[in-house]
Every structure is written in C-alpha cells, then in structure tokens.
C-alpha cells in the first residue's frame, strides 16, 4: 500500500511521537506538534499510537491512494475533501482504490494529522521516524514532502483489518465509508483560535519582578510570524528580571516559556533545542500542549496559572480518556472477531 503526493502543501512532514532517549546527546525530540491528534488518528485506524503519520501545515497536500486505504484525519480543521466529498475529523474513513485526498481553507487550528493503517513506513533513525528538518534526517529523506513522493505504508495490524470490515456495510456508492464511531467530545482539547492555555510556574518565576509575573499571566500575547516548529515567539508586554542574572544552561521541555534579554517570551515547541539558558517564567501544562500547537501565526494566547497538582490531575484524566477510547476500539474489534 502506498500513497503518492501530487501536491506537497506548505509544509507536510512525516512525524511520529518524537525521538526519545537521545536528548542527552543534544538530539532534539521533534515529532508531532499536536501529539494528541496524531495518537488519536493512529488509534482510529488500528495503529499503535506512536506510528508515523503526516503532519500537514496550513495549506494541505493532494494525496492519491492507489489502493483501498483506511485513514483518519485529526487535529486542525483544514477542510479535508475525499473524492470531492467533505470528510469529518476524528473518524475512521475508508478511502477506496484510486482516491484523491485534498484540503481546503483553514477552519480551525493550523495542523492536521493524517494516519494510514499500518503507519508510514519511513526508516527509523535514532528510535524514531520523525523528520528532523535542520539535520536533514529522519522522516522522508530528512525533508518536507515534495510532488511525486511515493510513501509506503507498513503492514496493517489485524485491528486495522477488523475496523475496515466493520465499515464495509457503510460504504457509499463511490466506495467511501465514514465511521459512526468517533471520539467522545469531552476528550477533545478545546481547540480555538485564541486559546487560554493552562500554565504552571516556571523554575525561575521568582527571578522576575512581580509586575512581570502578573502581566504574563494576565495579558494576551500574539504569536509572531517568525515562529515555527522550534518555538513560538510571542509579542506582548515585556518581562523583566528583578536583577540582571546570567543563568547556567539546563534541560527544557515542550511548553517551557523562556524569556531572553529583550523581554519577549518564547514558548519552546517540538523542535526545541534540548537545553536552554534563558530564565523560565512558566511551563505550559501537558494537557494544553495541543492548544498551543494549533494556534496560528498571528494568533493570540493567554496564559492562565494553575497549580502543579491541577496540571497532573488534568493530565491523568486526559490519558485515562485516551485509554478508554483505545479500550472501546479494542472491544469493538473483538466482538466482531466472534462474528466475522
């Protein structure tokens, strides 16, 4: 099974959940910006959560499926259209032989994730299939997709085959089938153009003057256009330290908000460096990383302070919800196994 890229879109890359275990060597994590969306897309086609899919940014690609393929599109709403028909997000979809997948205007968010049954069979480099653009490795030849790329899918798991069988009787005349099952609405992050992002105190919050701390958690920040997968540069009230301090570099993570000397904060994203030396005023709670990942350039963000224990509670609820979804899909598969 393979898919052919007819048009590449603005920035379409192969991503999985990132490159773990090699940060201590200075190798970035990378991976999907909205890892939640990729995980769900994978589950909906019967893959492991960490299978490689496509991250599609703003302007979507045109993709031709030579063979019948089980797909799912999750995350940002870039108006996906399959064989001329709109396809909903967060569903399992059968794309029949000879299908054309296209995208239209951005309706919500900015990054859509496409999973295919079996995952994209790109070579594993340093524990991951993610594209590491700067080093030109991983993903598909270390680069964004181009016209004419032909991406193979891995062998679909038994789970994918069962899901496809379950959808067989729902196929329309043109062969497209869309699942009735979907994701519980309460599990989905509250994606919006101007999110309020829940954030806990950063390791160096106390080094900032009180005014700066109040402003950071009160004012609205705009995402500057020079932001990318490495970090979101924010424009807004300038943040100041109580006194000038040189910090020693230490490890950072997704959602770390650091403040360089110009006082304009930067939120670190998927392709961040492994360590940083600027003071960290705040840290976005894991549960709201998807909201940030789906905020457009030029969009606005507000940071709301929550406690560490609240952040942990929200994380556990989210993870439990994902496991419930996985369990539900697995039960559906076993009950069908009995009948088919």
């Amino acid at each position: 099974m393979s898919m052919i890229i007819l048009k590449p879109g603005l920035l379409t890359t192969v991503q999985d959940l990132g490159r773990y275990g090699v940060q201590q060597f200075g190798v970035i994590v990378g991976g999907a910006m909205d890892a939640f969306a990729l995980r769900i897309a994978n589950l909906l086609v019967g893959n492991d959560e960490g299978a490689a899919g496509l991250e599609i940014t703003m302007v979507g690609p045109e993709i031709y499926f030579a063979e019948k393929t089980l797909i799912s599109i999750c995350g940002g709403d870039l108006s996906p259209v399959l064989n001329g028909r709109e396809v909903p997000l967060w569903k399992t979809v059968v794309a029949p032989e000879g299908s054309l997948l296209q995208f239209g205007p951005v309706r919500l968010g900015c990054r859509a994730y496409l999973a295919v049954a079996g995952g994209i069979d790109a070579p594993v480099r340093m524990n991951s299939r993610s594209t590491y653009l700067r080093a030109g490795l991983g993903g598909w030849e270390g680069r964004a997709l181009r016209k004419g790329d032909r991406l193979p899918a891995g062998e679909p798991a038994r789970a994918s085959q069962v899901l496809a069988e379950l959808l067989a009787d729902q196929a329309q005349a043109d062969g497209v089938a869309i699942s009735r099952w979907s994701v519980a609405p309460e599990l989905l992050p509250s994606y919006t153009a101007q999110p309020e992002v829940r954030t806990i105190a950063g390791q160096e919050l106390a080094l900032f003057d009180e005014d700066s701390a109040d402003r950071f958690f009160g004012e609205t920040y705009r995402v500057k256009t020079e932001s990318d997968r490495m970090g979101y540069r924010l424009a807004g009230d300038s943040l100041r330290l109580r006194e000038k301090r040189e910090l020693v570099s230490s490890a950072v993570t997704f959602g770390t908000v650091q403040v360089p000397p110009d006082g304009q904060p930067i939120v670190l994203m998927a392709d961040r460096q492994t360590t940083g030396g600027y003071p960290k005023i705040a840290q976005v709670a894991s549960v709201d990383w998807p909201l940030l990942a789906q905020t457009n350039l030029g969009g606005a963000v507000q940071f709301r302070m929550i406690s560490l224990s609240e952040a942990q509670r929200l994380y556990l609820i989210r993870e439990n919800g994902i496991r419930t979804l996985r369990g539900g899909l697995e039960r559906m598969q076993t009950s069908t196994n009995g009948r088919v």
């Binding site: 940060q23 201590q24 020693v248 993570t253 360590t275 994380y315 556990l316």
Partner: peptide, 18 residues
C-alpha cells in the same frame, strides 16, 4: 521514566506521569 539529560549543574529526568 523516559530519559534523562545531564547539564552543568543538574540532571533532568523526563517521565510519563500515567
């Protein structure tokens, strides 16, 4: 536990809370 990153003064340990 996912991984650890040593730095000048510290070691940071990453984990999956669940």
């Amino acid at each position: 536990m996912i991984e650890h990153v040593p730095a000048f003064l510290s070691v940071t340990v990453y984990f999956d809370p669940f």
